[in-house]
Design a protein around this nucleic acid. Sequence first.
DNA 1: AAAATATGATGGACGATGTCAATCAGTTTT
DNA 2: AAAACTGATTGACATCGTCCATCATATTTT
Lengths: 167, 167
Amino acid sequence: MTAGKSDPSAAVTRVEDVDLGVLDDTLSFFIRSLNLAVTRDLEARLEGLEVAHGTGRITALFLIGRHPGIRPSMIAAAAMKDRSAMARVLGDMEKQGLIRREADVADGRVQALHLTEKGEKLADEVRAIVRQSRDFFHDISDEEYAQVIDLLRGIYWRVVKSNQQKG
Amino acid sequence: MTAGKSDPSAAVTRVEDVDLGVLDDTLSFFIRSLNLAVTRDLEARLEGLEVAHGTGRITALFLIGRHPGIRPSMIAAAAMKDRSAMARVLGDMEKQGLIRREADVADGRVQALHLTEKGEKLADEVRAIVRQSRDFFHDISDEEYAQVIDLLRGIYWRVVKSNQQKG
DNA sequence: AAAATATGATGGACGATGTCAATCAGTTTT
DNA sequence: AAAACTGATTGACATCGTCCATCATATTTT
């Protein structure tokens, strides 16, 4: 008998033969594993581009670009990060001259974030790269890709709102 | 005019009004954001349970349990991790008395991994918790949950195989 | 058979990450 | 005016993923 799915207790030597057990029905497993892969790929594409490393930077760049004057906590919520983690990211981006932090006129506690010209340019560059990042899933058909995105988008928003209520 | 999706350039104060721009069509964005949320939730559930922190541990525990004698690189591939990163995880788990590392009889370079009794017990505990972790998505219907899983499972395996060829 | 090459696994160093608690400034409530 | 709350920041800490070098063993080449 050769090694294969029919004999789960045999020591496997090919990944395809691995039986994931409970994990095979666990959404978080796939999200967490794929996270490593897509992050690796994305960072390779962004190499040297001053926004490499970390989910927060790209999200911040785009959200500030799309919503000038947006506040840090909004970006933190959208990126599902801690406020303090986002503050650090924004501090870095400010040092890099990508964004400006101004005080909100209505509420002194709130910061109003804006892209600098340098930030705008970078946002354009990164946007193109992010669009290309779909190539990582070149094995996946457009239908499949659209289906997963639709489903994950729905889940994403429900989680975001749920986080908002708690945090 | 009140703030809302119709005026994307206005500074938003509610997360629901945030326009994700390109990210709204980017699979990796949703995977990376949701990764943070599900990881947070999972680690809260595993609190104090000796496998907290890091994707690798749970995957290792289950795969070794299901495939006694499996080698480190198989687990690394399934968890989409670096071999050296997985080596570290396995070293920790050995110190904790969860697994044994034996030399493979056929190939001296290869290690054959086994769960200890303590590891078996922990695997059972963790399995129950992982099953419960579906509750994190209580907003999501069974149909939706099954659909995403099916799609992500397919993507997962294609990525795993693709990694295998390169790495 | 000897040498070169390839493979599996480890260990150290480095930068970055996420979390938590504490702090500070500004705002709302009473 | 005092108290309670909110937004943001900082420091400390443990951990993570990556890269590079190393070591032992197998396989391939000559």
